[in-house]
Design a protein around this nucleic acid. Structure first.
Length: 360
DNA sequence: AGCATTTGACCCAT
DNA sequence: ATGGGTCAAATGCT
């Protein structure tokens, strides 16, 4: 462990915890309809905490130490590993060298993974043409043991042309058939999904269509995304965190986009970040093109990517992971909220987490 | 013709 | 041995 990072990590955790506590206070205040001033103050404090945390993350940069490939996609969300991927890893590579196949498989396994739960409304059922700006191609469907509905497998259309290894799985919920659990793996590296989305067919769709930002510029927008995400109720799921996959699952409440948008206008993160593009970073409800599976995001994939990547970037697995996995094992629940540590871990609010040596 | 989906088979991890 | 994930030929659609 690097001492410098330990210290920053401690501060980071401290800031995050503080932000979480403040958010809880805010929630209480909202429940009790407190004054707007105190609410604003809390919001500012929360934002300040997360900003600090983000700055810590940002200035640390990628961990230079050789790491397992699980975090190679720290900035782009998709591994930029030297592994040679030719898009046809199976039969072709088998002939050439089985090593390649293994590495491809390994790479795929290491892709960050997160899950989004989305609810299908009758409206979206009818619209049927929602798009998240990314182009998916279905490559498989399987009946899953114990699941009522089959699971569908999608990959980025531009896997071969742009070496984009993003995939997603869509699984209809047994309990609530209107809910689709979408598991994403890897972030898009293709330009298509993140360039300006083609003009929508109707003004209504324009409202739902996101202008996806370019992945290459993701870094600039990460902070905005994260702040916005947090402000709108970030949920972190550990689905898939089976102690091998490090990427936490980020789930955003399926709030209506109208609400998100209107709220966002008043969101000003202390002037440090230009949030003028935040609106554009959100993806609309969508339906996978030409598929029978309905799904839509409540928040853009890139947002979830970004946050997961931020947490992964530095591979400071120990503490954040520790917090998460500890709870996972304690509850044995596949899904849990990020706010668990504050409920289950007794923290002295006055404790100085950035005390040198605390995390070493 | 070109692209997407379907679906049985295969591979791999457990 | 089994289940999940992926491939790729067959088929469908535009």
């Amino acid at each position: 462990m690097e001492h410098g990072w330990n210290w920053k990590q401690g501060t980071l955790v401290s800031e995050l915890i503080q932000g979480m506590e403040l958010a809880k206070q805010l929630r209480l205040q909202l429940d009790s309809a407190s004054s707007a001033e105190s609410t604003d103050l809390l919001v500012q404090k929360i934002l300040s905490s997360y900003e600090k945390a983000l700055l810590i993350l940002k200035f640390n940069g990628p961990v230079p130490v050789a790491q397992p490939q699980q975090n190679v996609g720290a900035t782009s969300g998709v591994p930029e590993s030297p592994l040679s991927i030719n898009g046809s890893p199976r039969s072709d590579d088998l002939d050439k060298d089985s090593q390649d196949t293994r590495e491809v498989s390994k790479k795929r396994k290491m892709l960050p993974r997160w899950t989004d739960q989305v609810r299908v409304t009758s409206e979206s059922l009818l619209e049927g043409t929602h798009d998240d700006g990314f182009s998916w191609r279905k490559y498989g469907q399987k009946d899953i043991l114990g699941a009522k509905y089959p699971r569908s497998y999608y990959r980025c259309t531009y896997r071969h042309t742009q070496d984009c290894w993003a995939t997603k799985q869509v699984q209809r919920s047994d309990e609530d058939p209107t809910i689709f659990e979408i598991t994403y793996r890897g972030a898009h590296t293709c330009a298509h999904g993140n360039q300006g989305v083609p003009p929508p067919a109707s003004p209504k769709k324009q409202e739902h269509k996101s202008t996806n930002f370019n992945n290459n510029n993701n870094q600039q927008l990460q902070s905005q995304d994260i702040l916005f995400s947090l402000r709108n109720g970030l949920r972190v799921n550990t689905e898939g965190l089976d102690n091998k996959e490090m990427a936490p699952s980020f789930s955003f409440p399926s709030t209506s986009f109208g609400l998100l948008k209107s709220e966002n206008h008043s969101f000003s993160p202390s002037g440090v970040l230009d949030n003028s593009n935040i609106l554009n970073s959100f993806s609309p409800p969508f339906m996978s093109p030409a598929t029978s599976e309905l799904n839509y995001f409540s928040a853009s994939q890139s947002q979830m990517n970004n946050f997961g990547e931020m947490l992964n970037t530095h591979n400071s697995e120990s503490d954040l992971k520790g917090l998460i996995s500890a709870n996972t094992s304690a509850t044995n629940s596949p899904i849990m909220d990020l706010d668990f540590p504050l409920d289950q871990v007794e923290l002295d609010p006055c404790f100085q987490f950035d005390t040198p040596g605390f995390f070493s």
